[in-house]
Design a binder for these strands. Structure first.
Lengths: 248, 248
DNA sequence: CGTTTGGTTGAAATGTGTCAAACTTTGTGG
DNA sequence: CCACAAAGTTTGACACATTTCAACCAAACG
């Protein structure tokens, strides 16, 4: 049981170190936890809403999204997770989630037994603090989504979404240029923005016509970052790039 | 400095005990923290977006809301806080927030110096765990708001909002009947739901005509709880009433 | 008692949804 | 490697939920 998962968990640990100041001891302890990894095909669910959870999910490669369903069957995407993200911290601490998680593209996920990770949090308050911070960051992003969906028109809203996706890839060190892998279908974007797929198509067309973005195959390129940010009302401060470690 | 704020902080501590199993030691330690209390008039801001925060806000009486602003000046309410809630845990841990907080009605708030509370979290991991849980619960509520704003029509969405407000009052022990104090203006509801104030007025009228609610002065009464929940697609499980203490 | 704030109502404008069909790309099995 | 199927994209016409504008009314307030 005393394996070293450091190479597997690296997306997570580098993220936690850079954004929240994960300590080296804590990183090493994380790497010693039992970890089961798995490939998940595009579209498959990883966590089902309402079900009990006894394991903590970590995205190691690819992207996942969190979703909730309406009584009428409507789907709303409530968050995105890149490599290094923890899509279901609520499951870890509550043992149950109201938010499902599914793979966007074929992706690589890891499972850590909840008990083991919670024990580690108990014995290492500094690790718990890092994960708490991560929870706060995720909450800040969801609040921005509420603003985006509630008070911005479709063009602004979609542009904002694209900005966030590219920016988060850059933060995670997953892309260096003004663009990134972009595995979303238009109906996924619609479900993320509370729009219809048809309308997403039209707005996307406008953004391309205006020379703001390029979207070919499964790659997105931002042609005019300055202008896209401006017309999309995008201010990345809610992502808290600045690691202001007010707390040790 | 060795005052006992237990009576002041009771809304907070009873909430944390009931929902997250706050320990007696931790409660007592919280009560010993320096606490400054203040009356805030309706509409006044308590936390400004983007500003540094060196104190942790706790609502002691009345209600507050969290809000974000669009570049164009639009306002979106991103959360509600009742007596016993902590509106700005992000400020506590990050030292800065992207979400403003303002009083809905005249209310009573307390301020705890961030340093003191963070120190207490360091020395008492079980307290930190409780506040982490509280953060997760707040995040779950915001995700439900994303679903509500993104994928439900105005009637369902507004009904859902009303259900949440009444239900949270009941959880907090602030009302026993099928109704509660309701200090919102229609334009506040509009800003919470991403709608226009005029439309909120019309939908509200329909809800009254259909015999679902009564709304007089500053009080809301749910006349047909069963039916309101049904037509509003309201399932309170996201509020995690069941205190499933999977973690000690 | 005037003034402000919030509520109510109507008419017209509009952004977005729905439906339906054609087209294109991707994936798959023979 | 082709052929077919499935999934995703694009486009148009039309419907409709919601917004906007504007006016009036009621209630709260100092």
């Amino acid at each position: 049981m005393d394996v070293d998962n450091s190479s597997d968990l690296r997306p997570l640990t580098t993220r936690l170190r850079q954004l929240h100041g994960l300590l080296e001891n804590d990183r090493a302890a994380l790497a010693r936890l039992p970890l089961r990894t798995e490939m998940v095909a595009a579209g498959r669910s990883i966590v089902w809403p309402g079900q009990p959870a006894d394991r903590c999910v970590v995205v190691l490669k690819g992207m996942t999204f969190g979703y909730k369903l309406t009584g009428g069957g409507g789907r709303q995407i409530v968050g995105l997770h890149l490599a290094g993200d923890l899509p279901d911290l609520q499951g870890l601490r509550f043992g149950t989630t109201d938010t499902g998680v599914a793979a966007i593209n074929g992706c690589h996920v890891g499972y850590i037994p909840s008990g083991a990770l919670n024990d580690l949090c108990s014995s290492r308050p500094s690790l718990a603090s890092v994960l708490w911070r991560e929870t706060l960051l995720q909450a800040a992003i969801v609040r921005e989504w509420v603003l985006n969906i509630g008070r911005r028109d479709a063009q602004t809203s979609l542009g904002h979404f694209l900005c966030e996706v590219v920016m988060r890839h850059r933060i995670a060190g997953l892309t260096s240029i003004d663009g990134c892998k972009f595995p979303f279908t238009q109906s996924m974007m619609a479900d993320a923005l509370g729009l219809s797929a048809v309308h997403v198509n039209r707005v996307l067309k406008d953004l391309r016509r205006d020379g703001l973005i390029e979207w070919a195959g499964r790659h997105l390129t931002v042609l005019d970052w300055e202008r896209l940010m401006r017309v999309s009302d995008f201010d990345p401060s809610y992502l808290h790039l600045d690691r202001s470690l007010s707390v040790a």
